[in-house]
Structure formats: structure tokens, C-alpha cells
Design a protein around this nucleic acid. Structure first.
Lengths: 182, 182
DNA sequence: ACAAACTGTTATATAATTAAAACACTTGCC
DNA sequence: GGCAAGTGTTTTAATTATATAACAGTTTGT
């Protein structure tokens, strides 16, 4: 069980990912980005942005010119492109395949886009490519899955997917309901 | 863009989830759990465990008897059961559907099991139930998808899944390769 | 029964992410 | 030209997750 120690050492933090993506968004929308613009977009203080940007500048992902305008370095841009691609496929998988609501998919996607491995992201992209391929088996799968949904007996013994408890009942519970007094 | 502020305020932290699951593991393996046992299992110091446990005791997820033996409260147990169910379905989806390697699926699963919404977890469980149902369309989908994999032309224009850049090329890159000097 | 080993807690420290407030500098308007 | 508004940084502070080290108490072995 040494795996769990890796789980914090992620390549970039959630916060860093969003700072980088905010710069990218601003560059596309206004052609420039400053500390204040990022702060406004992320709804945090300028001081926080200034401090958060420091390690990103040190790592060469973000650059600042003589007028203190911010831009992404080439590597920073590449990182953002990867993150956006992953966000897109995760969200699309959740909505188009799983049938999760748009807003929920957006939030869940943001939480995990920077955490998934390249391997998982690659396989997820392959899945979506297959679904988009127009293959008859893909279309039928999606259609039948979306019709399937109702028939859970909530009986672990009778269920080929369950072990001792109904997975459906367990997995679908909200964590906050379990944490909060009830 | 108020969504992104929610992304940190998760119901439980990664660390808390693993402390709770460690207690559960120890209870199953030895019938009891103490601070030292948790520390050994997670490979952190007893001091760290003692401190991490404090908020969990305060929230009533963990209890400690007069001999300082630790156990999960009813709510703590419920939380662990939910987390384990989610971990299981995420990992199973990654291996059985996506074809991700076992070890990678374990790590990725650990990173996100406590972050996904109930809605997404529920839909993911439904997907696995459909695949386990033996429906012919499910079997064919998996089989054909696993054979499909090769044919990416890496040409965004010709690809029904891509926009301006090849999603496959982007999403499958390792983040650390983008961050590290190259 | 006593020393060695182990246990749990606390104190102190570090790093990350954020906030608020204070400061200095720049810009824009009248 | 001068003041109000905006901008970026720094300082101070809080929280979370961890570490080490010191301490006090409990077991264990002989």
C-alpha cells in the first residue's frame, strides 16, 4: 500500500490549473491578461493571484513582461491545451454516455481533469472516438443503455454486478448526507 | 464562472478518506485499530495520524474508546462503504470498459473516488450494470471497442470527435512532460 | 521488577492555498 | 495638476497535511 502516498503529489494543483486556464481564457477574450483580470475571473483577490503566480513563473509556465502583463509560455500553453482537451472528453463522456446533467458534468470534470493519468485520458478519448464513429454497435449500446436504466432490483444476491451490498444504493448516495448528521 | 470555487470545498479530503478506509481495513483484518496501526498502514507518523483524527472525531465519524482504540461510527462506516463502492466501480470501469491497466486504475480511482458527485457515480454504476446484464448490445460494444482502438488518423479535420486539434494527441500526453523542461 | 519497546499526544515546523489589509505605483478624468 | 480609481506586491493570518521530536504512559520479556 505505497500507492496512496502518490495521490497528493499531482503534477499540478487544482489551483494552478485554473490560474493557467484563466490566463488562456483572458488571452482569447481580450488579447491580454493581468493579475487583476485573473483575480476578477477567478473571484479571488489580486494578492492571492500574485502569490499563486510566483511558482508558475519560476517553473516557466507563465511569463510577465515589463508592463507586468501575463502570458503563458509555450509549455504553459501546451499544458492548458491538454487540460482543456481532457476536460472536454471527461465532460462529454459524462453527458453523452452516462447521461449526467451538464452542470454536474462541468463541476466533476473540473475536479478531476488534472488528476487523471494520460493512460485513462487516452482510453476515454478512444471510447468517445468509437462512439462518434457511427459504428452500429456503438449507437445501439448508447440507445439501449439509456433505455436500460430503470430495472435495478436492489438485491445484491440477484445482481451480477453486486457483491454483498447493492452497489447502486451505495455508490449513488451523496457523501454529504453520510457525513452530515442524519 | 462561480463553479470553480466549489472545486476545493469537497465533502471530505483525500487524506480523511484514506484515514477512514485504513481504520475499516484494520477492523476487518485484525478486529481493532489504533493510531499506530493506522500510521503503519498509511506509512505516516503516529503524530500525523493523531492530529488528522482529531477533526474526524469532532465530526463524529471516528470514535475512540477508553483504551484509545479507534473505530468508525455508524456514519463513518457508511461513508467508507460509499467510498469503497465508488472506488470499485471507477476502477472496474477503467479496467473492464476502458482497458486501463490495473495499477493505473487503482491510482486514478483513489484520486477521484471522493470527488465525483453522487449523480456521476450513480450513472457509472448503471453503465456497469448494463454491461454485466449480458445484453447482446453491451457485449458487442465492449468487444468492438476493444478491437477499434488503432484507427486514429490524427487529423482533426477528418475526425468526427475533434475540433481544431487532435483530441487524442492532446489528451493522451502526460502532464509532467508538458510541465517538465523539454 | 525493571529496562526496553511500544503507544498516543502535543509542540514546533514546513509547505500550499487562500484571504485581508496596507503600501506604492500608475492611469484616467475633470 | 491633482485626486480618485485601479493595479501589483508584500505582510500577516488561517487552514490543511504532513514531519520530527519530546514527553508521558503502557506493555513485554526476562
Amino acid at each position: 500500500m505505497h500507492t496512496w502516498k502518490q495521490f497528493d503529489r499531482n503534477v499540478i494543483t487544482h489551483s494552478a490549473a485554473h490560474h493557467l486556464m484563466a490566463i488562456d481564457t483572458l488571452m482569447h477574450e481580450h488579447g491580454y491578461a493581468r493579475v487583476s483580470d485573473v483575480a476578477r475571473l477567478l473571484e479571488i483577490t489580486r494578492g492571492s493571484v500574485s502569490i499563486s503566480l510566483k511558482p508558475l513563473k519560476a517553473e516557466g509556465l507563465v511569463e510577465q513582461d515589463e508592463n507586468r502583463f501575463i502570458r503563458l509560455s509555450e509549455r504553459g500553453q501546451r499544458l492548458v491545451d491538454i487540460l482543456r482537451a481532457r476536460h472536454y472528453i471527461i465532460k462529454k463522456f459524462m453527458t453523452a454516455v452516462l447521461g449526467v446533467g451538464e452542470e454536474r458534468a462541468e463541476i466533476d470534470g473540473c475536479k478531476i481533469e488534472h488528476l487523471l493519468s494520460a493512460e485513462t485520458s487516452e482510453r476515454l478519448t478512444a471510447l468517445l472516438r468509437f462512439i462518434d464513429s457511427g459504428a452500429e454497435s456503438a449507437d445501439r449500446f448508447i440507445e439501449e443503455f439509456h433505455r436500460f436504466n430503470e430495472a435495478c432490483l436492489h438485491d445484491a444476491q440477484a445482481c451480477p454486478s453486486c457483491q454483498d451490498q447493492c452497489l447502486y444504493d451505495l455508490a449513488s448516495q451523496k457523501l454529504q448526507d453520510a457525513v452530515a448528521e442524519k
